[in-house]
């Protein structure tokens, strides 16, 4: 008995991995045309890694889809292209710039304009154009309060909208992906992971990450409580505090206009895990888009934001 206790123990990372692989395979099996949303951020990198494991030695049986705001860090795009090549996966890119050019969306005006909200339209257009019926995302329930009740299989109506009252109960290992024509699902295999779990898994599996996650020198501007990297799309305004050549890193990676850096010397995985363990701010605390109102995430989700 004592021996059985030890040999069949499954630690937390192995359980989370097994669950995520199960969800990825369910998605491939239950839907006709799934896609994996790939942002180049660590969560989507872990997702692609898990997908590789789930279907090995076959290739990932669905494309990776990137909604590119056009305001991405160069490092992100470089990483994306290299990783996709290594996976031999198919990459589909939806360009926010195209949505703007086609007049599908209006770009926000002013110095603090962000394309974050515009992504939703491009995402929904890309889904419709390619007729994806399930989009796999790296969203986690621990990220934000509005996500705590998110399902693994999150139902969206034919307008792409999420209705908190119209979600299906999920019991045991049983996920109901039945749908009517035009409806689709968002699927979140990492639902039960925390930021710490993701970092630990990246370390345990030795998954390479974009350099943005590690400390480096950069010029930044302080804006609305966030520290943004100065670039073509983030231009300091009069009266804003600028810092040159400071040592920072990013805890999340997204649009340059709303992804805040943190002061950090963490230059390797152990240092990052140590930093996450002692963090005083939630991960999304560095995201300017969540600071717009207390229920900002809930509002964006209802409109179809990932």
């Amino acid at each position: 008995m004592e021996q059985e206790r030890n040999s069949y123990r499954v630690n937390h990372l192995a359980q989370l991995e097994s669950e995520a692989i199960f969800i990825l395979r369910e998605t491939a099996a239950q839907f006709e045309k799934p896609a994996l949303l790939f942002s180049g951020g660590k969560d989507s990198i872990v997702m692609a890694h898990l997908a590789r494991k789930a279907f090995h030695p076959a290739r990932i049986p669905f494309p990776l889809v990137h909604v590119d705001t056009g305001h991405n860090f160069d490092e992100t795009i470089q990483y994306r292209d290299d990783y996709v090549a290594e996976l031999r996966a198919e990459l589909v890119v939806g360009l926010v710039q195209e949505s703007i050019d086609q007049g599908r969306v209006q770009e926000e005006k002013g110095a603090f304009a962000s394309r974050n909200a515009l992504q939703t339209v491009t995402l929904l257009d890309t889904i419709e154009e390619n007729q994806y019926d399930a989009c796999l995302g790296g969203g986690r329930r621990d990220e934000e309060k509005a996500r705590a009740k998110e399902r693994f299989f999150s139902h969206r109506d034919d307008f792409g909208q999420w209705n908190p009252k119209n979600q299906r109960p999920e019991l045991w290992n049983i996920f109901n992906g039945r749908k009517h024509h035009g409806e689709h699902f968002r699927v979140f295999p990492l639902s039960n992971w925390t930021e710490m779990d993701v970092w630990q898994y990246i370390k345990a599996e030795n998954i390479p990450l974009p350099s943005l996650y590690f400390s480096h020198k950069r010029d930044v501007v302080h804006r609305n409580g966030s520290m943004l990297a100065i670039s073509d799309v983030v231009v300091p305004q009069e009266g804003e505090e600028i810092e040159k050549d400071v040592t920072v890193r990013f805890r999340t990676i997204g649009d340059m206009t709303c992804t805040g850096a943190v002061y950090s010397d963490a230059s390797d995985m152990d240092a990052i895990i140590q930093e996450v363990a002692t963090a005083r701010q939630t991960e999304r605390g560095t995201r300017a888009d969540d600071k717009r109102s207390e229920t900002a995430m809930e509002d964006r989700k209802k409109e179809g934001y990932f």
């Binding site: 937390h12 705590a148 809930e298």
Partner: peptide, 28 residues
């Protein structure tokens, strides 16, 4: 700390299953 959606906060009740996460050095 555990209040979720606006609808619930307004009504002061919890109407669905919410999942929370925490860890100690021993267990997640």
């Amino acid at each position: 700390l555990t209040d979720g959606l606006r609808a619930e906060r307004e009504q002061g009740i919890t109407i669905d299953v919410a999942y929370r996460y925490f860890a100690t050095p021993k267990r997640k």
